[in-house]
């Protein structure tokens, strides 16, 4: 993106973003668990105009056999965008971008899933983007995280992800499509949250340029946003299970 174009694109008007949000405000998040009957765990998540569905299968016998690890489980993560999820039809199937996102997301989950409890097995996570509006990798991680809990898989904590961006020189939380496309930089984070505290960072990527101070400011913003999403993730799971558990 050339600098001239950035100047033309006015993304912040009167101290507010184009969709009326404040700089550190998340889009509306809606989470529902247990939506797929045949999966061991599943989750449907909406984050603004992002819509995704996650399914977790396993732990189950890992195939092909040579991929099995006799001391721990292997995790497979598949991020995929539906052909109809973007304005211009996307060719279905894995491409360079989704293979990369799958890899980094998987590595975030490998931090929390207690793999050594399930030797020789495989845990398969599938996330399908049904509608994309920037920050899909973050939203997908949030959905997959809830689906993993729903599947009853042992984990040390919960992974929560959120992105920040720099638009018109301002750091903003959870960018939407225009901010992502015409902004100067964006940076997705994934945090490992245990007992309501951020323990570590499981994923960090950056596109564009940010200064030290901007990153620091963005990190604080992302942490606050992640805690908010974490609360919603918890709520969604407890809501589903408290319906049946009135002991």
């Amino acid at each position: 993106m050339s600098d001239e174009m950035n100047d033309e694109m006015q993304l912040i008007v009167d101290g507010k973003r184009l969709d009326g949000r404040k700089f550190d405000e998340l889009r509306e998040v809606k989470i529902e668990t247990g939506v797929l009957k045949r999966a061991d765990g599943s989750c449907y998540l909406e984050m603004g105009n992002n819509k995704m569905i996650a399914a977790v299968y396993g732990p189950r016998e890992a195939f092909p056999r040579h991929m099995q690890d006799p001391s721990r489980a292997i995790i497979r993560y598949r991020y995929s965008m539906a052909p109809f999820s973007v304005d211009e039809r996307k060719r279905p199937g894995p491409d360079r971008r989704s293979v990369e996102i799958s890899k980094v997301s998987r590595e975030a989950f490998e931090l929390v899933v207690m793999k050594e409890l399930y030797p020789r097995s495989g845990i398969d996570i599938f996330v399908e983007v049904l509608q994309a509006d920037a920050g899909t990798r973050a939203a997908c991680i949030n959905a997959a995280s809830v689906a993993l809990v729903d599947a009853g898989i042992a984990m040390k904590g919960i992974v929560t992800s959120v992105a920040i961006a720099k638009v018109n020189g301002e750091i903003v939380l959870d960018p939407f499509k225009e901010e992502d496309n015409y902004g100067e930089a964006d940076m997705p984070f994934a945090f490992v949250i245990r007992d309501g505290e951020i323990k570590s960072i499981g994923l960090l990527q950056m596109d564009g340029k940010l200064s030290y101070d901007e990153i620091r400011k963005g990190l604080e913003m992302a942490k606050k946003g992640a805690m908010e999403i974490y609360r919603l993730q918890r709520e969604a799971i407890i809501r589903k299970y408290s319906l049946e558990e009135v002991e």
Partner: peptide, 12 residues
């Protein structure tokens, strides 16, 4: 008797 629902990572 009601038992609390806990999630992975909750301090017990």
């Amino acid at each position: 008797m009601s038992r609390k629902i806990v999630l992975p990572g909750d301090l017990l």
